[in-house]
Nucleic acid binder design. Structure first.
Lengths: 197, 197, 197, 197
DNA sequence: TCTTAATCGAGACGGTACGTCTGGTCTTAGA
DNA sequence: TCTAAGACCAGACGTACCGTCTCGATTAAGA
C-alpha cells in the first residue's frame, strides 16, 4: 500500500445524486400505482420526488424513459425463462410468471409504454432495444431448445411462432377485452402441442 | 295538408352541416399523412377544416373518435373476409389484403388509435366495440368454417388461435421491429397447417 | 328609427372579458403593494387574478406592459397640470401633486417600469411614448406659458429646463438617497425664480 | 524543510486567483459590449471566463456588483472634475468628458446598473455608496467653488442644483428619447448662467 | 311572415404540462 | 482554503392544447 491509488476515472464536478435518482424512479412508480399513467407527468414526478424538473431532464429524454427504467427496477428479477426439459412445461411456467407480472401496476406501465412507443419514434427504438427484443429472443431460445429436443416440427419458423405467442399475450393486454388468465395460457399451450412433428 | 313529405323525425333548428363533417374527417386524414398522429390535434384539425373546435366536440368525444371514423371511411371496403373453401387459402388471402391495408397512413392511424386506447378508457371501449371485436369475430368465424371442414383439430380453442393470429400481426405492427410482409404471412400459415387433426 | 341598426363593428368570436382584464390589473397592483415589483411575475398575476397566463400574454407583451396599464389606471386622474397664471405657483402645485403620487405603490411601480425600460428596448419605446413624453410635453407647455408671461428669460431652452426639473425628480426617485419632499420642491422653485429676465 | 519562504501574512489555503478575478471582469465587459446587459448573466460570465459560478459568488454578491467593478475598471481615470476658475468652463469641460464616457459600453452598463438598483435594495445601497454619492459630492464641490467666487446667487441650494444638473443627464440617459450631446450641455450651462447674483 | 331552436365560424377563457432558463447552493477532486 | 466542473433545488418563463364558453350569423321547421 505504498502507492496512493487515486481513482483515475472520475469526472470533475459534483457527482450524480443516487438519492435523487432513486427518488425519481420511486415517485414515478407511486404516481402510476395511485393515479395511473396519464397522471404520471414530469411535473408530478418532480414534485413528489422533491426534485427539480431539470434533474429529470438531465438524465432522461422523456417521461416514458423514466417509466421504462422504473419498470426495469420492478421486473428485473421476475423474468425467469425456465428450462425444465419440456417445452410445454417451460411455456406454462413462463406464462404463469409473466401473467402474474402484468398485474398492476406493471401491466398499466407496460400499456403506457406501448402507447408512448406508438407516438414517439425515439422512445420506440429504446423500448424495443431494451425490452421487447431481448424478451423475444429469450422466447425464441426457449422454443429452439424444444425444437432441438424434437418437440416442434422442423419446418416451423420459430420467430413467427414467438410472434404468435407474445402477440397473443400483448393482444389481450392492449386490445382485446378478455382477461389474461391461466385458462388462456393452457389453451395456448394446447395449440402448441399440435406443432410436434 | 295533403302532402307534407317532410322528414317526420327531424328536429327543429339548423341541421348538421354535412360539409363540415366531411371537411373534419378529411383534415384529420391529411394531417395524419403529412405530419403524423402526434400533430393531429383537435386544434390542427379545426384550423385545417375551417371549422370551430366546438363543432368537432359537438359530434365526437375526442380526437381519437374522429380518427376512428376517418379510418373507417378509409378501410370500410377493404376488409373482405374470404371464403374459398380452404382455410389456408382464406388466411393467405386475408393476410394479403390486411397487410396491404396497413401501409401508411392506415397503419399509422391504427398505431395512434391503439396508443389512445391505452390512455383513454372510454375510447378503449369504443375502439374495441367498433373495430377490434368485430374483426376478431370475423376471424373466428373463418376459423370455425375451417374447423367444420376438418382442417383444424377439434380440441383447439378457436378464440385463442385467433388471438395468436391477430396478436402476431399487431405485435409486429406496434412493438417488434420486423416488417409485416408476405413471408411473415406464409410462415404463419405454415404453422397453422400443423393444426390439422 | 325604421332601420334595424345592427352594430356593424363587432368582431366575430367571444369578446374579450372585461372582468378578466380588470382582475389582471388589480392583481398586478395588489402584488406590487404587498410584495414588491420583483414578486410581480406573470405567474403570480395569473394566479391571483384567477386567469390563465395565456390570457395575459394575449393582451400584453410583457409584465411591464401590464404594470404600465395598471399604473395608468391609478394615476390617470392625478396629473393636473395647473394654470394659475404664475409659473412659481404652477410648479409648486404640480410638484405637490406629483410627489404625493410617488408615494407607494406608484413610486415603486415607476421604479420597476424605469428599470424594465433599461432592459427591454421594446418596452422602453412604449414607456416613453405613453408616459414619459406626454408628461414632459405638458411640463414644457407649462413653462412656455410662464415664458410668454415674461417669467423666464427668452434665451432659455425650455426643453432643457424641463429635463432639469423632471430629471431632478427622477434622480431622487431612482438614484440618490434623499427624500422627494416639499423642501426639495421649494428649493427647486427658488432656483427657477432666478431665471426671470 | 530548511526554508519555507511563504508569505508571512497569508491566510491558510489556496490564495485567491488574480487571473480568475481579471477574467471575470473582462468576460462581463465583453458580454456587455457584444450582447447587452440582459445577456450578461452570471452563467454567461462564468462560462466565458472559464470560471465556476461559485468563484463569482464567493467574491461578489450579485452580477450587478461584478458589473459595478467592471465599470470602475473602465472609468476610474476618466472622471476629472476640473477646476479652471470659471464655473461655466468647469461645467462645460466636465460635461464634455462625462457625455463622452457614456458612449457605449459604459452607457449601457450604467443603464443596467441603474435598473438593477431599482430591483435590488442591497445593490442600490452599494451603487449609491460607491458611484452616485461621490460623483454628486464632487459636483456639489464644483458648484461651491463657483458660489464662493460669486458665480451663483447665495440663496441657491447647491444640492438641489446638483440634482437638477445630474438629473437632466440621467433623465436623458435613462428615460427621454433625446440624445445626450454637446448642444444639450451648452443649453444647460446657458441656463445656469442665469443663476448669478 | 315570424318565431324557435339548433347549428355554424370565430376565438377568448381557465387550466395543465411542457421543456428551457437562470439563480444561488452544494459537492466532488485536485492545486 | 481555493479552484473548475458541474449537479442540485427552485421557480418563472413563454408555448401548446385541452375542453368550455360566448358571441353574431345562419338555416330550417312549425306557428
Amino acid at each position: 500500500m505504498t502507492n496512493l491509488e487515486k481513482k483515475p476515472n472520475s469526472t470533475p464536478g459534483r457527482p450524480r445524486s443516487d438519492q435523487s435518482h432513486r427518488a425519481i424512479l420511486q415517485a414515478a412508480r407511486e404516481i402510476l400505482e395511485q393515479e395511473g399513467y396519464r397522471a404520471m407527468t414530469i411535473e408530478a414526478i418532480a414534485a413528489r420526488a422533491g426534485v427539480s424538473k431539470k434533474t429529470i431532464y438531465r438524465w432522461w429524454p422523456s417521461k416514458a424513459a423514466v417509466a421504462l427504467e422504473a419498470l426495469a427496477a420492478y421486473t428485473d428479477e421476475l423474468v425467469p425463462f425456465p428450462d425444465t426439459g419440456s417445452l410445454e412445461r417451460d411455456l406454462l411456467t413462463y406464462f404463469e410468471y409473466s401473467i402474474a407480472g402484468l398485474r398492476s401496476p406493471s401491466g398499466d406501465m407496460l400499456r403506457g409504454l406501448a402507447a408512448e412507443a406508438q407516438l414517439d419514434p425515439e422512445f420506440e427504438r429504446e423500448f424495443q432495444r431494451s425490452f421487447i427484443v431481448p424478451r423475444k429472443e429469450d422466447l425464441v431460445a426457449l422454443l429452439k431448445r424444444g425444437a432441438q429436443r424434437g418437440e416442434l416440427a422442423p419446418d416451423i419458423d420459430l420467430h413467427v411462432l414467438a410472434d404468435m405467442i407474445y402477440g397473443a399475450k400483448w393482444y389481450r393486454l392492449l386490445l382485446y377485452p378478455s382477461p389474461l388468465d391461466d385458462t388462456f395460457a393452457r389453451e395456448l399451450v394446447a395449440i402448441i402441442r399440435h406443432l410436434k412433428p
